[in-house]
Write a protein that binds this DNA or RNA. Structure first.
Lengths: 255, 255
DNA sequence: GCCTCTAACTTTGTCGGACAAAGGGACAGC
DNA sequence: GCTGTCCCTTTGTCCGACAAAGTTAGAGGC
């Protein structure tokens, strides 16, 4: 019979990690609210009793995690992590794991359908106005694949936003970020691609307006199937997401 | 008419950020493969021509992003970002954004149903063996809410894994991490909670075995509805996720 | 009294050097 | 072949320093 454990594992985390954890705890449990100042590096040196280099390493960890950031004057303050920034981490991970476009397509089918269902049910007038505005801008750039792809990405972000479900909004973002670059290629390669894309958006907006769930789901499916057909003219769905697509995600993250 | 731009915006990112970006680029575009050594801090000092403190700050950024890590001997090497670690960042963000349990529930309903559909279609013998093993362990701890909740969380991870869709796996993880702690409370509070949970798992495994999609979806719905009923005995679905739940996510991340 | 401009002061980003602790490797001894 | 020791490398931490950018306060002009 093994001995009863006499000792707990001792905490051997390096100091910079402890600093980061301590500040993270205060933010996550709400004692430091988003927007609250964290204090200067020198303040933290005094409070934690460690060297400024150590403090700075801890700050980098928190900054990368999106929990704190520096304002225009580079002062530290707690902040709400931004979805797009976090999602681009995930996109990056998906690329490194070499997920296939089939996986992306299947997951997006689920997530975008769920988004439109939520939007049909709960979209506000403001959401609709944003979508309508997006549609106008899309129509204006229907001949420019790059701009149109950008509008398309924004359109689906707006639909997800209209669902009023932030979990869904966040869940769909990583896959969406990897779709975005391909849309440009497809619209450029397929003659009727642009107009079909804009037409689908129009039908989706109408569906939301009429609170017509069936139509919303139908047109989302069609929209994604269009993407799929276009993609399969270029490559196999079983191809894994290429590294080049990451350049987009990186650009998005830095915004 | 404005002058043609003579100059590009100059890059004013701090040095540690440039170091991190440079290494990130090499990893993401595949020139450094997961597992490859990065070299010692001193090597990087020589290569980048900056001070070691600067290098270390850059390393912290990459470490937090999950792109590099240190092995047992603390040497740096590139690695595949781990889903659970990234997902816990998202869970944290969701908590800070004060998402409601209703949002979690709705999104999970979508994501878990999609997972089971994928699992029914594509689960391997190995996936089924893992699920069966999980079921045995769940039955053994049916009287212990904390252990059972842990088994439940693992069960759904295994279902998502069986779907062979890593995008889905990743997308469901953040919401799932926030569910996990509540399951324990619910199982503890509702008399028949434990046995019902295990029974649902058994039905789900059978559905996967029989490739019976209808049954899989049905029992996933019931399983989640059970959670919902249990939760509503404790609190309103419109309550936002409390900060206390983050302690779990933090524990998960550190594993 | 209010505004502007300048001169301190503060804060950040970076640098150089330093040292203890932990790990890895080579080498001798059994 | 295994073990223990010594040495070297690497990491984590510390100290002190400085230029650049931002902030604050006070002088001076209206």
């Amino acid at each position: 019979m093994p001995l009863a454990p006499l000792f707990r594992p001792i905490d051997v985390a390096p100091a910079y990690q402890k600093v980061a954890d301590a500040i993270e705890r205060e933010i996550v449990n709400g004692r430091i609210k988003p927007g609250d100042p964290i204090g200067t590096e020198h303040d933290l040196v005094r409070q934690f009793g460690v060297n400024r280099s150590t403090i700075r390493e801890g700050i980098r960890v928190l900054e990368e995690g999106g929990l704190i950031s520096r304002d225009s004057s580079r002062r530290l303050h707690a902040c709400l992590p931004r979805y797009t920034k976090l999602a681009s981490r995930l996109s990056r991970a998906l690329v490194l794991h070499e997920v296939t476009f089939r996986e992306l397509y299947e997951a997006s089918m689920t997530l975008e359908v769920a988004s439109i269902e939520g939007a049909v049910e709960r979209a506000t007038e403001e959401n609709l106005a944003e979508l309508a505005d997006n549609l106008v801008r899309s129509e204006a750039v229907v001949g420019d694949p790059a701009m149109l792809a950008e509008c398309d990405a924004e359109f689906h972000v707006l639909v997800a936003k209209a669902s009023q479900n932030r979990v869904l909004q966040l869940a769909r973002e990583p896959a969406a970020q990897l779709f975005y670059p391909t849309t440009e290629m497809i619209v450029a390669g397929v003659a009727e691609g642009g107009p079909r894309l804009v037409a689908a958006h129009r039908h989706l907006i109408e569906a939301i307006q009429r609170r017509d769930r069936e139509a919303g789901v139908l047109w989302t499916r069609r929209h994604l199937q269009d993407w799929r057909r276009g993609f399969e003219k270029i490559a196999s769905l079983d191809r894994s997401v290429e590294h080049m697509y990451m350049e987009h995600a990186q650009a998005v993250r830095r915004r």
